[in-house]
């Protein structure tokens, strides 16, 4: 601890001022209205096609060399699993999950695949204080676990409850989440393993902007089938993966109260005051000091001695 405190002290006195002044400037760059890389890839997920076979889960497990699952991937009893009243979610051992939802007015259940949505302006990225996350031009949100300190702020920030943490690792616990198969596939222009494995083509892989047109066209051609909404087109500033559904999205477990603006927009008001405080406060309070102590002994000079009683 003493070592760190010392180092912080040194770094703080040397680089502190500079880095603090840098904060607003960097922020301004990240701000604006970034709508994703123009050539970024995405995936259109059409829930009406999913039959809940869990092949994507198996494909992800194999591709990402994830640990053995607790149940076989063709065991459908997982759809009945409830933890804390919640259906399954992504974990450090499973980057994608299919859940089953019972939807009103239809006999057929609805299946929903959950994985990282690869936001255009990811909350995880903007909340990370070691800049571990990166949105690649190909559209993936990846992260460098070598710098992960383990503060888990990204898990707080993610509006989709996606990043998980390998809590049980002693020496190298890190964030774990879907990376769009960036290292092994996307980088080479190939679709992620789950997309390729899907027997129903629930997922269509392509450029985000092309897929968005297709999504709207599907709604237009089948107005009776689809809900007239592409979940992820606007949500939290737009996501790389987006959804079509035949049932209201909230019935399939989607959070439909999410803001349309990126999460970071909430924080901008606060970040804007940082440079103000940094520049105005010193002058203001030094001024107060001079006013308040005018005519009195100037603050505590060298003459100050605790042996004297300071009567007032």
């Amino acid at each position: 601890m003493s070592k760190i405190t010392r180092r912080r002290f040194l770094a703080g006195s040397a680089a502190g001022g500079a880095a603090l002044m840098l904060t607003p400037a960097q922020k301004a760059l990240a701000a604006g209205s970034f709508e994703g890389f123009p050539e970024g890839m995405g995936v259109l997920v059409d829930l009406t096609r999913c039959v809940g076979c869990r092949t994507c889960e198996a494909a992800c497990n194999e591709e990402q060399h994830l640990p053995e699952p607790s149940k076989p991937f063709d065991d459908f009893s997982v759809f009945d699993e409830i933890h804390h009243g919640q259906k399954r979610r992504t974990t450090d051992k499973a980057y994608t999950i299919v859940n089953r939802y019972d939807v009103k007015d239809t006999e057929e259940p609805l299946y929903r695949k959950i994985q990282c949505n690869h936001c255009n302006e990811p909350a995880c990225l903007t909340s990370c204080f070691v800049n571990a996350y990166k949105k690649t031009p190909e559209g993936a949100v990846i992260y460098n676990s070598k710098v992960c300190v383990g503060c888990r702020n990204c898990m707080i920030a993610c509006p989709f409850h996606i990043p998980a943490y390998s809590y049980h690792s002693v020496l190298n616990p890190v964030i774990k989440k879907c990376i769009f198969c960036y290292d092994t596939r996307l980088k080479e222009g190939k679709p992620p393993a789950c997309v390729e494995s899907c027997p129903q083509q629930v997922m269509t892989f392509g450029k985000r902007k092309d897929l968005m047109k297709i999504a709207h066209e599907r709604i237009k051609k089948n107005p009776d089938t689809y809900v007239n909404h592409v979940y992820g087109e606007k949500e939290v500033g737009g996501t790389g993966w987006f959804y079509l559904s035949n049932a209201p999205f909230e019935e399939a477990g989607f959070d439909t109260d999410l803001p349309k603006k990126p999460i970071i927009d909430n924080v901008k008001d606060f970040l804007a005051i940082v440079p103000m405080v940094l520049t105005i406060w010193p002058a203001l309070f030094t001024g107060f000091h001079l006013l308040a102590t005018k005519g009195k002994s100037h603050g505590h000079g060298d003459d100050h001695s605790h042996d004297e009683q300071e009567g007032h």
Binding site: A15, A19, T23, Q26, C128, N131, A132, V147, N153, L271
Partner: peptide, 11 residues
Amino acid sequence: MVYSFGPAAVL
């Protein structure tokens, strides 16, 4: 502090 900066983050 010294190695990897994420200056846009509140943390």
